[in-house]
């Protein structure tokens, strides 16, 4: 086991997958000579050459579409869209093209492509660099959406995404970029798509979260350790999400709090809450609650962004309320 930073784990995953399979290519803005805007593709150009590692113009729609066309004709491209916000520029290729090509072609074609994109939420980057748009993507049939909250998951999910035969959007957290964690040495150690991680087992209340919010949930659960036994589930795959793990947990605890950094309205938390309401109605001992960003753009100044994102104190309050409000 090595202790790597989050970005180093991503870099290692790319390097290992490119070494394993020559169909794996990397393209995107600044991914070649600059080594990526934040280092995730560092060294790949030197190691694998300019044919397989391509700097591109700032043409999000076209580079995502190019990755799609290449994926349909023998490559396994990993295209980087620098920030999750910039995915909106490529949405035709993501939503209308890549997500549907398998279906529309009646299985004639597959699109084994990955779109890597960074969410800079929590880094004071403002309304057009800090959006948590995972629900936009998860709403589209045909897209797989994953989000690792730590180095091991970022690496393992990216590897699974590269080996997947359909289009996968891999979201990465800039706020976690320098976080260190244990990473497996085995290049074939994957984190399976569609499988959540129980980060902290507990019996009193289930908290489902993902991405940048995971560590604030951990902090809240740790702070509450003496009064509430919290089970923390890191979803890891937003779509298709691990219903079995979440439903099993809620059936046991009878309580669910969903925490995410995206705005609450029409967010992925609503999908989880509705599914739990449908399947665990008889098991619930308290109303399902959500802790999420207010329905406003992401502010840039640190004090406002801190107030905007769910913080450990707010999360702990919601967990406590779920336990106190509910039927014992």
């Amino acid at each position: 086991m090595a202790r790597l930073k989050y970005w180093q784990a991503i870099n290692q995953a790319l390097r290992e997958e490119m070494a394993r399979d020559e169909a794996v290519c990397v393209l995107g803005e600044d991914v070649g000579a600059p080594g990526g805007p934040f280092g995730a593709t560092k060294g790949l150009l030197d190691e694998f050459g300019a044919a397989r590692v391509r700097d591109t113009p700032i043409s999000e729609a076209t580079i995502v579409g190019a990755a799609l066309g290449a994926s349909m004709t023998g490559l396994r491209p990993v295209v980087e869209v620098m920030f999750l916000d910039f995915m909106t520029v490529a949405m035709d290729q993501v939503v209308n093209q890549a997500a549907k090509v398998g279906y529309m072609s009646g299985g004639h074609y597959r699109a084994p492509m990955v779109v890597r994109t960074i969410c800079a939420s929590g880094r004071n980057t403002g309304p057009q660099h800090a959006q948590n748009l995972e629900a936009w993507l998860a709403h589209v049939p045909g897209l797989t959406v994953v989000w690792g909250s730590n180095p091991a998951d970022a690496r393992g999910l990216l590897k699974s995404a590269i080996r997947d035969d359909g289009p996968v959007v891999v979201i990465e957290s800039l706020a976690e970029w320098s976080r260190r964690g244990e990473v497996a040495d085995d290049p074939d150690a994957l984190v399976p798509i569609g499988v959540a991680a129980v980060r902290r087992p507990g019996t009193d209340v289930t908290v489902v979260t993902w991405g940048g919010a995971v560590h604030r949930v951990d902090a809240a659960a740790a702070a509450l350790a003496d009064e509430v036994d919290v089970e923390v589930i890191d979803l890891r795959t937003i779509s298709p999400w691990d219903r079995a793990t979440v439903l099993e947990s809620v059936r046991r605890t009878g309580r669910l709090v969903v925490v995410h950094d995206a705005v609450a309205a029409f967010g992925a938390g609503a999908e989880i809450a509705a599914t739990v309401a449908e399947h665990c109605f008889g098991d619930l001992r308290a109303p399902v609650t959500r802790v999420a960003a207010p329905f406003a753009p992401s502010p840039f100044p640190p004090q406002l962004e801190a107030a905007y994102l769910p913080q450990p104190g707010t999360i702990a309050d919601a967990i406590r309320a779920s336990v106190l409000q509910g039927v014992r």
């Binding site: 290519c25 044919a51 397989r52 729609a61 076209t62 580079i63 995502v64 579409g65 190019a66 990755a67 799609l68 066309g69 290449a70 994926s71 349909m72 004709t73 023998g74 490559l75 491209p77 035709d92 290729q93 209308n96 093209q97």
Partner: peptide, 17 residues
Amino acid sequence: GGGLPMALGAAWSAQVR
């Protein structure tokens, strides 16, 4: 216009391979 980038990608794939 949706097919243009895909064709570009198919051309890129031929070049890489």
